[in-house]
Simulated assay, not measured.
Amino acid sequence: MPESGHTWQKAFKAEAIEARHVRLWTAGRVRHPDAPLLAHELYVAVLGAGAAAIEMTLSTAGPRIRITAQGPDPLPLIHSHGPGWTLICGLADRAGLTTDECGLWAQLGVSR
């Protein structure tokens, strides 16, 4: 039996005040206690790279939640593996850089 899921996408202005909206938007769609903080950290990492807008994507499939923060340009190394990366890796079951290197993703709900 295939797993069903949902996907939500929203572009946020690249402004520090929007980080709160990212957390609220995430908490309103998925019920994992770490998801809002994880979305916040992904957003802040891409925000630090100087993007004008950041596209956030939440995807669910069964018990899994995947959160992606994407900007228009490749991320400098410090933003894709800087101090927030430690927090992201500590909260997520899996995390990485998108294939185009313009964003970061993290996945919850998967055994390691």
Rank of each mutant, 00 (worst) to 15 (best):
V110I: 15
G5R: 11
P83K: 11
K13W: 05
G90I: 00
H6M: 13
R20I: 09
W8L: 06
L108Q: 06
E15I: 03
L38K: 03
H40F: 05
I54D: 05
T7P: 01
E101G: 08
G82A: 01
A69D: 03
R31C: 03
G5Q: 13
L42D: 02
W25K: 12
A69M: 06
L104G: 05
P36K: 02
H21C: 01
E101Y: 07
A27V: 05
R94H: 15
I88P: 00
W25L: 09
F12A: 07
E55V: 15
L47F: 12
Q70K: 14
A61V: 11
P36H: 04
R29Q: 06
E55N: 15
A45R: 04
H40V: 00
R64Y: 03
H21D: 12
E55W: 08
D34C: 13
L24Q: 14
A11K: 14
S111A: 14
V22Q: 02
A27M: 11
L104Y: 06
L58K: 07
I88M: 11
A92S: 11
R66I: 10
A92E: 03
A49Q: 04
S111Y: 13
G62Y: 11
S59I: 02
A53M: 09
A39Q: 00
A11M: 13
A14H: 02
C89P: 03
G84R: 12
T7M: 14
L91A: 03
H81D: 05
G103E: 05
I67R: 01
V44P: 02
W8H: 13
L108M: 11
I54A: 11
D34L: 15
R94V: 07
S4T: 14
L37W: 03
E101T: 12
T98Q: 09
E18M: 13
P33R: 15
E41K: 10
A95V: 06
A19P: 01
T26N: 10
D93F: 08
L47Q: 07
S4F: 15
R31N: 02
R31L: 04
V110H: 11
F12R: 12
L42H: 04
I78S: 12
M1T: 15
T60R: 06
G84E: 01
G84F: 05
G62R: 10
R66Q: 11
T26P: 01
A69H: 01
K10D: 03
A52V: 00
A49C: 08
W85H: 14
G28W: 05
L47C: 12
L77G: 00
T7W: 08
E15M: 11
P63R: 15
